[in-house]
Simulated scan of single mutants.
Amino acid sequence: MRKTARWAATLGLTATAVCGPLAGAAPASPDPAPASLHAPSALVLTVGHGESAATTAPVRAVTLACAPGPSGNHPDAARACAELRGAGGDVDALGDGGAAFCTQQYAPVVVTLDGVWEGRRVSVERTFPNDCVKDARGAGVLAF
C-alpha cells in the first residue's frame, strides 16, 4: 500500500511539473485573422549608373509592396503595382517605350528588383542604355 501511495504522489507531481507550464493563462482574445489571403508581393528596387549590378553601387533604392495593398517608399506605389500586375510581374513585359524619343547616348543604367512577387522569389537585373530608355520602358515601376 505504501508503494502505491508513493507512485501516486510521484505521478501527480510529474504530471504537474510537465503539464503545468503548458496550461498557462488563457489568451484575452482569439488569434487575429490573417492580414490577407493574397500571396505577399514586396520588392526592393535599386538603380545605379553602370553596366552591371555587381560592379555598380546603387544610387537610389526604394521599397514596393503590392499585397494586400500598394505601399512602400516608391514615389507612385499604386501605379507601379498596377503596372506590375498587368505585366504578370514580368519586368520585360512592362512596355516598349511607346512614344518616347531618346538619344543614342550610351550612359548605362542598371536596375535590380529583388524580393517576392505573388509568393514567388524574384531577382531581376536589367541594364538600359540610358535614363531615358529606362524611364520609357519602366513607366511607373522604374520611375524612382
Rank of each mutant, 00 (worst) to 15 (best):
W117N: 00
A143G: 03
S71I: 04
A107Q: 12
V122M: 08
P68S: 05
L43H: 03
P27C: 07
R137I: 09
V44E: 13
G140V: 00
D96W: 06
H38S: 14
A8W: 08
G69Y: 11
D131F: 03
D76M: 01
T103M: 02
P75S: 08
R79L: 09
W7G: 03
D90G: 04
T112E: 09
C66K: 00
W7N: 13
T14L: 15
F144E: 01
A93C: 10
A23W: 15
Q105H: 11
L22D: 09
V133E: 05
A107L: 13
C81W: 00
D135P: 00
A136L: 02
D31L: 14
H38W: 09
L94R: 01
V116W: 03
V47G: 04
G48L: 04
A61H: 03
V133A: 09
A8M: 12
A5M: 09
E125D: 10
R2V: 13
V133P: 01
A42R: 09
C102K: 00
P75T: 07
A61Y: 02
R79A: 14
P32K: 02
T112W: 08
V62W: 08
L64W: 01
D131Y: 03
R79E: 09
L113T: 03
G24M: 12
V110F: 06
S52M: 09
A107H: 11
G24V: 12
F144P: 00
V133F: 07
W117V: 00
P40T: 11
A26V: 14
T10F: 13
W7F: 12
A80C: 09
A61K: 02
A93D: 14
Q104D: 12
P21Y: 08
A26N: 10
A28F: 04
G95T: 11
